[in-house]
Simulated scan of single mutants.
Amino acid sequence: MPKLSMDIVLDKNTSAKLRAISKHTAALADELERIDAETCPGCGELCEVTEYHADGMPAHKSYMCHVCGYIKRESTL
C-alpha cells in the first residue's frame, strides 16, 4: 500500500482562522443539542418550547408537540 503524505502551509492568519472555526463549531454543537432537547420523543417533530420566568429568572420550561399532543414541563430552578 502506498504511503500518503500531506503538506500543511501555515500563514500568519492560520491561528485566527482556527479560532474562528472553533468558535463556530461550538455554537453549532450547542444548536444541535437544543434541537435534540426540543424534539418530541413520541413522533420526532419539534416541540413548541415556552419558558416561564419568576422575578426575572427562568422558573420552568414547557414542551408541547402540536402533532401528537406530547407535553412535558421541567423546572429550571
Score class of each variant (00 low, 15 high):
33 E>Q: 11
46 L>W: 02
34 R>N: 05
4 L>A: 14
58 P>A: 02
75 S>P: 00
60 H>C: 02
44 G>A: 05
67 V>L: 01
49 V>G: 02
64 M>Y: 07
11 D>G: 15
5 S>G: 14
25 T>L: 08
48 E>H: 15
26 A>E: 11
9 V>Y: 15
14 T>E: 09
73 R>N: 11
75 S>L: 00
17 K>P: 00
43 C>P: 02
13 N>W: 03
69 G>A: 10
52 Y>C: 08
61 K>W: 06
60 H>P: 01
17 K>A: 10
56 G>K: 09
49 V>Q: 07
77 L>P: 00
3 K>S: 11
43 C>L: 06
56 G>H: 07
73 R>E: 15
29 A>H: 10
14 T>M: 01
25 T>Q: 10
21 I>F: 15
33 E>V: 05
68 C>W: 01
69 G>R: 10
27 A>M: 05
53 H>M: 04
28 L>Y: 12
10 L>N: 05
38 E>I: 01
5 S>T: 15
6 M>K: 13
13 N>K: 12
7 D>H: 11
73 R>S: 07
1 M>T: 15
43 C>V: 02
50 T>G: 06
20 A>S: 08
17 K>M: 06
75 S>E: 05
3 K>T: 15
67 V>N: 07
29 A>P: 08
63 Y>L: 07
50 T>Y: 13
70 Y>Q: 01
11 D>E: 14
68 C>F: 04
5 S>C: 07
71 I>L: 11
46 L>M: 09
15 S>Q: 11
38 E>M: 14
46 L>D: 07
13 N>T: 12
69 G>I: 13
53 H>L: 07
31 E>D: 12
6 M>E: 07
13 N>C: 05
68 C>T: 04
1 M>D: 04
50 T>N: 09
31 E>M: 07
49 V>Y: 13
47 C>L: 09
46 L>T: 10
30 D>T: 05
9 V>W: 15
54 A>G: 09
64 M>S: 09
73 R>H: 10
51 E>C: 09
10 L>W: 10
44 G>W: 00
36 D>P: 01
1 M>Y: 12
70 Y>E: 06
12 K>A: 15
56 G>V: 04
67 V>W: 01
22 S>P: 00
53 H>Q: 09
6 M>R: 14
24 H>E: 10
24 H>M: 03
67 V>K: 06
72 K>N: 12
62 S>K: 03
2 P>S: 04
69 G>C: 07
61 K>D: 03
35 I>W: 03
6 M>P: 01
35 I>V: 12
46 L>S: 14
61 K>A: 12
34 R>W: 06
66 H>L: 12
18 L>D: 12
4 L>E: 14
28 L>D: 06
7 D>E: 13
14 T>K: 05
76 T>G: 02
21 I>E: 13
63 Y>A: 08
5 S>N: 14
28 L>A: 13
55 D>I: 01
67 V>C: 08
76 T>F: 02
46 L>I: 13
2 P>F: 13
67 V>S: 05
74 E>L: 06
17 K>V: 08
44 G>Y: 00
17 K>Q: 09
6 M>L: 13
18 L>H: 08
47 C>N: 14
